[in-house]
Structure formats: structure tokens, C-alpha cells
Design a protein around this nucleic acid. Structure first.
Lengths: 352, 352
DNA sequence: CTGAAAGCGCTAACAG
DNA sequence: CTGTTAGCGCTTTCAG
């Protein structure tokens, strides 16, 4: 299989040009036209057995594999599903695990793309990534937490996970954010907390708005009035929640509990609290949202609201594939339940 | 910006053909040639300011963004780095998080590809993915746990993480697997265990061979003789380690502790043990390897050997970029340290 | 300053 | 059964 003595080598220099063998290289070495090679490689009829065999031999020798790029430009489908994310962090990678598990056996391949080089604050990343890839590189798209109205690309199935604007427009998959936030708040209230801080997510995401609403609703339902100065925005990211977290914890009348809109910022709250000499949960209770694996790894382990992240990813993938195979674009909206996961970061408030 | 009254719409139908606007659409609407559009979009000199402005307006109106595929076919570089994995599971996604964090500010974009639709047992996935993407779609490659000799693609920088055959050939990044395995074993021995089972990884991976060697060395150094019937292969995957795990735990003279070659199979050992009515760590101690976030989330939390997964990914990315920018292919080999993370899955053996 | 034309690697008619 | 041709969307000489 490796370059045997019989393999013609006269064109070796040219083959090296780009670093990989092209269909032209195969054709030349096999002494046939590129069209024939293409037919053989794609298993089309109309090629003599002997020819096919010879071509296949050369293909093996040269380690040829058709370029996804070139093929995709010519054909209208690539059999790859794209997952567009702003960044690879615990939330998107959990979805990815679910998608990856679900793609097994479907015959599709997976391509996760992160444009704008990690600059997740760069608005418009989703539209840009979509334009660059959809319709050429990928047949269908799962897009994670888009914050823009998606320009409905006709012909390219799109499913949005946790989109900026709830179940509307394109197909979506999300969680019961309102109910989950209510549950989180009720948990804190049941523990005896009355002065509760809320560290919000990104106001441009429906999930963040619903979580805040759930917080306020649960407080109100319990006869408590949320202190507006205790409701801050943390952007779902530690680097952006650091300031508001300090604001929350350094004030004299600091809350006895904080509900952070996602695990990453909740974990950061715990760290900041500890730097400030506060014990969690004795001095401060903290609850998060998401239940990414990291939540269990914090010290103390984080109490949180679990979303079925793997299932959300898997469902989004199934929806894309269904749209692909049926040709329809009926925009379905799936909402998954959430549940409370009690760990060690919440406890009754200090007796004081 | 959005289609204003002045925007010519006569070709709207054609624009919709593939679902996205192409450079041709922009050229037609702007009333210039595609060459001019290309120059404007790429900021080349030699375009009248007025023309450029008009083109940019149309670009904005149509939401045009050049196709990664078409551009990549024409130019020789795309500014995207590819991460090739067999599957998105905790190990590869941890690396991905590190890579994603490290790419910030480099100007490169990230593309993680999983060929063969999750069929990680399909040998040759790495060669196939490489041939399909390298040299066309991506400028450089980080490849995770390849099990084949990589056909050194001239001109395409490749860095392998945890490769099948240690620091040799192409650039690599790995951990001190030997030392880590020794540490894990010594931890168990220090606790008083003498009858220790070893659930290995994939024998086609250097990491797995080194971990087994470390286990044997540490046992021997402590004057213990590893029972060959207690040394099984688990393939690093729960679905493949299930059988050997049962074999290990169901025998009358079962070990009092198990060292599993990675966290995923260690967590599975805990689950199987509990199904069998064994208490962890009272009846059985379990230690893993990797320290993926999931390790802390198991019940009980898993004691394990931590690899600096994020750092490994970041380092691999840095190496690829360095090769890209310098044009050199000096194959560097980076090895990172490991450390013991004690949690609750290990304890002294039952008094019996 | 602008456009026509060639070509990246590949596939799909269509001739021979 | 095989090869020639055209063209996917884009960039890049090279003429005008």
C-alpha cells in the first residue's frame, strides 16, 4: 500500500505542491481522466472493473481522499451538519457532546465552527458564520445562543438552541427557563433567605430575561420584594460578572444568597466570596443554572438548576436532520424541563 | 441598511437560488464586476471611493459574506485552524476549551471536525479527515489521539495530542502518563491496598501503554506482584469497558481497588460496583485518570490523576500557529505534568 | 480605476 | 466504457 517499487514516481514533485494528492494526481498516475477517477471514487456505474481496480489501487497508494471543499462547491450537499458557536465553553461543549452522541449512525458528519476567534462579544458572529458556511460547507445548522434575528436561509435547515427570542421564527430548542428560575428562587426562599441577589445573564438572550422574570415572580409570590439594587447583569461570563459580583458582595447590606443566571458566573461568585473571606454556604448561599459538569467540581459543589444539555443538543440535531430529509421547514419548537440539583452551596442564612 | 426603497430588487428570485447571496449577486445589484466586489471586500487598492462605498452598501443590504469554501479553494490559506477528533466526549471537549481560550486574539478561527459520524472505532478516521480538510479548508491541524502514523502532509502544520506513539515524528503534546500512573498506584498502595485491578485503555495508544507500565512499575517497586488476571483492557470507553469491569468485580477474589486508565471508565466502574451492591470507597476504591469535569460529578466524586487538559490544548494551538507563522516544521514535543486529585472514591481497604 | 478571463478541485452532463 | 466540457464562488493577474 505504501509507495511500492512499482508505483510511478515521476510526478512526485508536483503532487507535493499542496501537500495532498488531488484527483488530478490520481488520474495521471492511473493513466485515466479525472472524470473516471471521480466515477470510481463515487461508485458510479459505467467503469470497467479492471479500470476501477487500478484507480482504487492508486487512490490507496496516494492516500487520496476527495477534498470536502472542492466537492462541496460542486455538489449541493456535503452530508455534514454544522454547529455554530461563539466560543467553546462548558455550555456549548455539553450540547456538542449530545449532538455527537446523536449523530452516530445517521451517516452525517459534524463540524463545529467558532468564528470571530473567540471574540464572543462581536455581535453578528452568527450571521457571519452562517453566510460563510451554510449553503456551501454544511447542509444543516445548529446554532447556539444566537442573539440576532436569523436571516432565514431558504434551503438550509436551521435550528437555534436557546435563542435570543424564545420559540418564534426558525425552529428552536430551549429549556423551561421561567420554571427553572422559579424553582431556584423558591429553593432559596424555602431555606429561609429573604435578601437574595440576582446576577443576571445577557439581556439580549430570552433565557436571561425569563430567568430574571422567574426570580422576580417567585420572590413576589412569596411576599418578598426584590431589591432592584440587588439585581445585576453578569453577562453569563465570569469576566463580565466580576464587577457586579463584587458590587453585590462588598456592600454592607449584602444578600445572604445569590442566584446566578448560569453556572459559570455562579462558580465565580463562590470564588469571589471566598476571596472576600465569606464562607459558602455558611455566610452566603449560591445557586446556579445549567448544571454543566464543572458545577459539581467547584468547592463547595454548586447547587443548580439542571438543563438537559445533552438532550437539547441531540434533539436539535434530530430536528435538523428531519428537516433535511423531509425537505420541510416547519419550524418546530421544543422545550425541555429543568430540575433542581441540590449540592453543597446552599444552606439556611446565618442566624444573625 | 435593510432593503431600502432604493434597492433594486429585480433579481431577488435568483439570489434565493442557494439561500445565500453570492459575490455575483452583489456585483449585479451594485452594477459592477465580481472582480471589483472582490477587491472591495478584501480591501485591495485600486477602487474608486465612490464605487467601494456603493458596493459596501449592497454587501450590507444583502448580508453578503464570502463563502469559506470558495475562497479557500482559490487562496492558499483560510486562517482557520482545524481540530480533528474521533468524537466529542469529555476528553476532546476539554482540549477544545483550552484551544478556544487560546485562540482569542490570534486572528485565527476554529473548526472542530468529527468525521465518520461518531464511529470512533473506524480506524483511519484521522487520515481521512486530514486528507479531506488539510490543505484546503484549514491551514493547520491539531489532531486528538490519532492511532495511525500520520502521513506527514508537507506544508500543513500538524500537532498531535496524546498520539499513538509518544513523542516522535510530527509535533506532539502529551502528559507524563508514566509518572501519573505511578502516582495513582502509589496512592492506592499507601492506602493499604495490595490486591489492585487495572482497567487499561486502548493498547494502540502510547498513553495507555505508559499508564499500564506505570501501574506495573509502582506495584513492583512496592514489592507487590500484579496479578495478570486483574489487568484488563477497557478501551477508554464505558461501552467497551463494561464487560471487563464486570469480570473484575464479579469474581470471588475481586480486588479491593481498581485503577482505571481514564475517568470515563473509572466512573463506569463506580456505577457497576454500585449496581453490584458494593459501596465505594468502603468496599472498593476507584481511581481514574484525566480529571475531566465529570470526575467531580460522580457519586462519590472520583479521585483521579489530573492532566492539564486546557493547557495541552492551548499549547498545541500555540505550536500550530508558531509553525504556521515561521514556516518551519521543527517537530517539537511538549510533555506536561500530572498531579493527584484526591476526592472521595478512594479509602483504605475493608478490614477483612 | 475597472473588467475579462483563468483556474483552485471536483462532479455531472454529454459526446465519442 | 471513457474523456471532454462546463461550472460551483471566489481571487488574481492582466488588459483596457
Amino acid at each position: 500500500m505504501t509507495s511500492s517499487p512499482g508505483t510511478p514516481e515521476p510526478f512526485a514533485t508536483q503532487e507535493r505542491a499542496t501537500g495532498r494528492a488531488t484527483i488530478t494526481d490520481v488520474a495521471r498516475v492511473a493513466g485515466v481522466s479525472v472524470a473516471t477517477v471521480s466515477k470510481v471514487v463515487n461508485g458510479r456505474y459505467g467503469v470497467a472493473a479492471a479500470t476501477a481496480e487500478r484507480v482504487l489501487g492508486v487512490v490507496a497508494d496516494l492516500g487520496y481522499e476527495s477534498s470536502l471543499v472542492a466537492r462541496s462547491l460542486r455538489r449541493r450537499q456535503t452530508n455534514v451538519i454544522g454547529v455554530l458557536v461563539a466560543e467553546f465553553e462548558p455550555f456549548s461543549t455539553e450540547l456538542l457532546k449530545g449532538i455527537s452522541a446523536a449523530i452516530d449512525g445517521t451517516g452525517y458528519e459534524l463540524l463545529a465552527y467558532c468564528g470571530d476567534a473567540g471574540r464572543s462579544d462581536h455581535v453578528g458572529w452568527e450571521r457571519r458564520s452562517l453566510s460563510r458556511l451554510a449553503g456551501t460547507l454544511i447542509d444543516g445548522v445548529v446554532i447556539v445562543t444566537p442573539t440576532l434575528a436569523l436571516p432565514v436561509h431558504e434551503g438550509v435547515p436551521i435550528v437555534a438552541i436557546d435563542p435570543h427570542t424564545g420559540p418564534t421564527g426558525p425552529a428552536t430548542v430551549d429549556s423551561d427557563n421561567l420554571g427553572g428560575a422559579r424553582t431556584a428562587t423558591e429553593h432559596l426562599i424555602a431555606l429561609g433567605h429573604t435578601r437574595i441577589g440576582y446576577l443576571g445573564g445577557r439581556s439580549d438572550l430570552e433565557s436571561a430575561r425569563l430567568r430574571e422574570l422567574g426570580f422576580v415572580e417567585a420572590m413576589t409570590a412569596a411576599g418578598l420584594t426584590p431589591d432592584p439594587s440587588l439585581v445585576l447583569e453578569g453577562g453569563y461570563r465570569p469576566d463580565r460578572s466580576d464587577r457586579p459580583t463584587h458590587d453585590l458582595l462588598e456592600r454592607a447590606d449584602r444578600p445572604t444568597a445569590v442566584f446566578a443566571a448560569n453556572d459559570l458566573s455562579a462558580i465565580h461568585v463562590i470564588q469571589v466570596a471566598q476571596e472576600l473571606g465569606l464562607r459558602v454556604p455558611e455566610d452566603l448561599s449560591v445557586i446556579g443554572f445549567d448544571n454543566v459538569p464543572e458545577a459539581a467540581a467547584s468547592t463547595p459543589p454548586l447547587t443548580t438548576i439542571a438543563q438537559s444539555l445533552h438532550e437539547m443538543g441531540a434533539e436539535a440535531l434530530r430536528m435538523v436532520i428531519a428537516m433535511l430529509e423531509s425537505g420541510t421547514t416547519a419550524s418546530k419548537h421544543t422545550r425541555l424541563p429543568t430540575r433542581l440539583v441540590e449540592r453543597a452551596s446552599t444552606a439556611p442564612p446565618p442566624a444573625a
